[in-house]
Computed example of a mutant assay.
Amino acid sequence: MADGNVYTGRRTFLKATGVGSGAALVGSGTVRADERAEQTGRHDDIELHGTYWTLAGDTNPAPIPGREWSRFSLEERVELAAEVGFEGFGLWHADLQHIMREKSLAEIAAIFDDYGIDYIELEFLGAWFLDESDERRQAAEERWQLLLQAAEALDAHHIKVGNIRGFEAPRSQVATAFERLCQEAARHGTSVGLEIMPVDPNVTSLDEAAAVTGAPSNGGILLDTWHISKMEISMEDLTQIDRDNLVHVELNDGYNSGESITYQTTRQRMLPGEGTFDVSGFIDSVQEIGYDDPWGVEVLSDYLRGLPIEAAFQRTYDQTMAQF
């Protein structure tokens, strides 16, 4: 499905089903965050964190082969993110490696400090739970050391881990490996968030996620509207999560285009409030358990990647804040 057809396809879907008929469409006069605030007064204390893929511009996210690092300089992205209102910023391991060809971790930290960004997310680690003899685990260990060094230098809030590739392992082995990650992360002053997702055969529910992440004090679950919706986890189930076991929350939206889950996940996500997911219910449920940290917004979208960076950042901020 071509870039422009993502939203055309959604219109067709909504018209046929009658779902979400009140949601704003791209180009149809999305409510600005400041206007929504005057109407509701709901987001006086809300802080937003722009995840890597949302603020990276035209990239090719895994597992699509291609360039994962941003063509825009880190300083350019951070300056613009702070200007539109973001108070957090995310870095992907490949982008971090690219930046570090020219800048030290101390110089990277100084950029965040200069623009008042003090909520940093680092990602992504996979294969961390496989057997030590597995080459994929060995490659993951090298990446893990990079992320740990960066977490300490940048005072990162958390490192995101998960199972994007859908590798299989006993759940007890996953839990033991997660506890090890948290112990090592603690020595570098950061936390670990396990992102639950529908492609992970080892952790298929909130209860299983809690069992894997419940032991370490600096680790827990990372919720993403996209994955929660695709896994058909109910809003009621979300309210049963232990707040102390919730590391971070990410917002987005979408619809079922009929494409593969990988295609939809990496190319067809939508800004919060522009799809058919129950974003409002998701926010209310997470707030009900006491979540008050910055909210991430993670939108992997051909449409968003095609916008000028200024328009993409401003539109993302305004549309996300309008949901509160």
Rank of each mutant, 00 (worst) to 15 (best):
Q39L: 06
G254V: 04
A139M: 12
A185H: 01
V297P: 00
N202P: 04
F13Q: 06
Y255I: 14
L206I: 13
I289A: 08
H188F: 10
R32K: 07
N163P: 12
E195M: 05
W53H: 11
P201T: 13
M231R: 07
N256G: 15
A37D: 08
S280V: 08
T276L: 09
L271M: 14
N5K: 15
V249Q: 13
D244P: 02
A169N: 13
R32D: 06
I120D: 00
P272A: 02
F86Y: 08
G219H: 09
N252L: 05
E232H: 15
A150Q: 03
G290S: 11
D318L: 06
A175N: 08
G27N: 11
G88D: 09
G20C: 04
V84Q: 00
N218H: 11
S70N: 05
R171T: 02
R71I: 07
A33T: 00
T54G: 09
V249R: 13
L251Q: 14
I309V: 14
G66Y: 08
T239Y: 12
L181N: 11
L147A: 05
D114N: 13
Q183V: 13
K103M: 08
L194A: 09
Y119A: 04
V249S: 05
I283H: 11
D113H: 11
T204D: 10
V249I: 10
G273Q: 07
H227N: 14
D293H: 14
H158R: 12
H188M: 12
L147F: 04
R243H: 14
T51Y: 03
I120W: 02
I117N: 02
L300T: 01
Q287V: 02
L80E: 03
R42P: 01
R67F: 00
F13C: 06
W128F: 11
I289L: 13
H248Q: 14
E250D: 15
Q240T: 05
R180L: 07
R187Y: 14
D34M: 09
M235I: 13
W92L: 05
T54S: 15
P170V: 03
D200R: 01
P198R: 10
Y291I: 04
T204F: 07
G220A: 10
L146E: 11
E236H: 08
A209L: 15
P272E: 12
E102F: 15
D293V: 03
L122A: 01
M231L: 14
Y291W: 14
Q145W: 02
I108N: 03
A16N: 12
D207T: 12
G220M: 04
I120E: 02
Y263P: 00
N163K: 12
E135N: 11
S21T: 13
T262F: 14
H227C: 06
A185P: 02
D302I: 03
A109V: 02
V6C: 10
G273A: 06
F282G: 01
F124S: 07
E135Y: 07
D95A: 02
D58G: 02
E250H: 10
R36D: 03
D284E: 15
I164D: 01
A81L: 03
H43D: 15
P65M: 09
C182H: 01
L148E: 06
E123F: 01
G219T: 02
Q323M: 15
H98S: 12
Q145G: 10
T213G: 01
